[in-house]
């Protein structure tokens, strides 16, 4: 745990230095950090608890819309809106998990797509609330302690704080009783029950935590975009992107999702240049490579090799 927090500390220092070193490449870094945070949060449910969600864009949208509508219609400061969004996301996750977590098989995954799509249709059609298909614009933001929330550097620091928070939470979970419960449920629900774990409750907790964190990131994303379109925020492909980032990086590992974000989003501009709109092609190809050859994901595979080498060395002496 100390080792992981040391690495995280170094990452934070590097992150704090970044805006001074590359002041012109902030936008891409903000995307990487947001995706790292989303993928890490997704992984609490998708990797640690083994419940594949393809609807997390719904929570991104929820967070962003709470901030935007709270600000433009009710004059609500973004931090309060983000807290409300986190509560709403957790409540939605609770209700939704109650319906689907009792069932075995692919039902949960299928329902995630349906719920996110319903949220998208609400965002498009309920114009009185959400600005409809054209979207909603954040025109003004408060200035807490004289900080300009429209500044890219501020966005960068918020995204950095968000991704660091999610990784820190996962480091703590990985060592906690809850983390062991999650892994037990992922490996075999019946055995977990035999050990006195209630799989539905464990999965619900993971889902609510994951949803609330993604909504927090969504709120930051809303401030960053300042113009919200339902076609982007609740988009199925955003959900897929979040899930695949975590899986390609390494499911159920502490650093895998962040490494996935660094690789995939960091190089995203290159793919965008090569394939224009078809840039998700690379996700399709990479997920096949990972499924066929690196089933633990990139970081998971590195980790496994390291553990094996250490074990081999320990048995030689």
């Amino acid at each position: 745990m100390i080792r992981h927090f040391t690495v995280l500390g170094i990452a934070v220092l590097a992150g704090l230095a970044y805006p001074h070193l590359f002041p012109n490449a902030l936008t891409i870094a903000i995307s990487v950090l947001l995706f790292a945070g989303w993928a890490t949060s997704w992984d609490i449910l998708g990797g640690w608890a083994g419940q594949l969600s393809l609807g997390h864009a719904g929570f991104v949208g929820l967070g962003a819309y709470f901030v935007a509508i709270g600000q433009s219609d009710y004059g609500l400061a973004p931090w309060w809106a983000m807290m409300l969004a986190m509560i709403a996301a957790a409540a939605l996750a609770f209700a939704w998990g109650r319906i689907t977590f009792g069932l075995r098989g692919p039902y949960f995954t299928l329902s995630t797509i349906a719920v996110a799509e319903i949220l998208r249709m609400i965002a498009i059609n309920e114009g009185w609330l959400t600005g409809g298909a054209t979207g909603v614009f954040i025109a003004t933001l408060p200035e807490p302690f004289g900080i300009d929330l429209f500044s890219r550097v501020v966005h960068f620091h918020m995204a950095l704080a968000f991704s660091v928070l999610t990784v820190a939470i996962v480091i703590i979970i990985s060592q906690s009783r809850f983390g062991y419960q999650l892994r037990a449920v992922r490996e075999d629900e019946s055995s977990a029950m035999a050990a006195g774990i209630n799989p539905v409750v464990v999965k619900l907790k993971a889902f609510m935590l994951s949803a609330a964190l993604v909504a927090l990131g969504g709120g930051i994303y809303g401030i960053f975009l300042s113009f919200l379109e339902p076609h982007i925020l609740f988009y199925l492909f955003l959900s897929i992107q979040i899930a695949l980032t975590a899986i390609i990086g390494g499911r159920g590992t502490i650093w895998g999702p962040s490494i996935g974000a660094l690789l995939l989003i960091g190089s995203g501009e290159i793919f965008r240049a090569a394939f224009a709109q078809a840039n998700l092609l690379i996700y399709g190809l990479l997920i096949l490579v990972v499924i066929l050859f690196l089933p633990r994901g990139i970081f998971g595979e590195i980790q496994r090799r390291a553990v094996r080498r250490r074990y081999a060395r320990s048995t030689q002496g």
Binding site: G50, Q277, A278, N279, L280, L281, G284, L288
Partner: peptide
Amino acid sequence: DAPPESAMLATLGISLIIGNGLLL
């Protein structure tokens, strides 16, 4: 022989490849 989820993810990858291939 992998968990059923792997096949689901593989088909998701195929879906992205077909959709984006058609787009190209």
